[in-house]
């Protein structure tokens, strides 16, 4: 047997989760506390799921306004609908009989990027962190988005973050979500975004997208850009799950294959 060092009792450091073991099994928890609250001994039956989600992300029991914001956002994001690329990916897994986890992984992978995905929310939130509610700074940013000097796993953003490059006008559900969230009494980002939306859309050359609303909401919840990205990814999974299940039941013959859509425009096949 070879080993590079003697084993030592390393620990997982956390300010979120605390456990007390069962008396007869050090690997089984008898008590689990989340940020100080006994999850199974007290929270169950008292806290709502949204309150618990807030506690996990924010570290504290949410205010009524915070809980309301997150509940509205969670419903708005829960199902992007089967035309959305992330849900399309999940359905593609479902229709092929792939494992349930692969449907969610597909939705996460596709829904992680710079067009309507977690990456877009993070970039938009970083802009909020830098620009606050300064209209002239936002206009300058949207007209001339900064370019990264170094290459990365993420491609460069091809449009203003939080705005929809394909849309003609702000989609009705996006506007409805923004109006509902802005009326919750939170701030300052959502009310400011609602008030300046048309000016910002003009500077961006594109209408506001749901990712932009989500970014502003996450800022008003007090989340960091990294937390907002993670929460956005998480909240969009329910729709992907149920649409994957539905298409798995319907089968691949009733799912679009896009017959005739792929058109080869490169070098013509040779006569090898």
């Amino acid at each position: 047997m070879t080993s590079d060092a003697a084993p030592r009792q390393e620990v997982i450091r956390t300010s979120i989760w605390q456990e007390e073991p069962e008396p007869d099994n050090p690997f089984a928890a008898a008590v689990c506390r989340c940020r100080g609250y006994d999850v199974y001994g007290e929270l169950l039956g008292k806290a709502s799921f949204i309150e618990y989600l807030c506690l996990l992300f924010l570290g504290e029991r949410p205010t009524q306004v915070q809980a309301k914001l997150l509940e509205i956002l969670a419903i708005a994001l829960a199902n992007p609908g089967p035309r959305d690329a992330s849900v399309h990916a999940a359905m593609s897994a479902g229709v092929g009989g792939s494992p349930a986890a692969s449907a969610l992984m597909a939705a996460l992978g596709v829904g992680a990027g710079g067009l309507g995905g977690g990456r877009e929310v993070r970039v938009a939130m970083e802009a909020w962190e830098q620009l606050g509610c300064n209209l002239s700074d936002w206009e300058a940013f949207l007209r001339h988005p900064p370019h990264a000097e170094r290459a990365d796993i993420w491609p460069e953003m091809e449009h203003a973050p939080g705005f929809d490059p394909h849309a003609v006008r702000c989609a009705t559900p996006v506007a409805q979500t923004l109006d509902t969230l802005a009326a919750c009494g939170a701030g300052p980002h959502l009310p400011w975004l609602a008030g300046q939306r048309l000016t910002l859309e003009s500077a961006a050359g594109a209408p506001l997208a749901m990712s932009g609303v989500a970014a502003a909401t996450c800022r008003d919840l007090g989340l960091s850009a990294e937390q907002g990205e993670m929460l956005y990814l998480l909240l969009r999974l329910p729709g992907a799950a149920v649409h994957a299940l539905e298409q798995a039941q319907l089968g691949f013959k009733r799912f679009p294959f896009f017959h005739g859509a792929v058109k080869y425009v490169g070098q013509q096949p040779d006569n090898e």
């Binding site: 620990v11 450091r13 956390t14 300010s15 979120i16 605390q18 456990e19 073991p21 007290e42």
Partner: peptide, 16 residues
Amino acid sequence: LRCERLHYSGPASRGW
């Protein structure tokens, strides 16, 4: 991992 290998540094036990 044993339960005791979670090194907790958050708020003390409190009621909801």
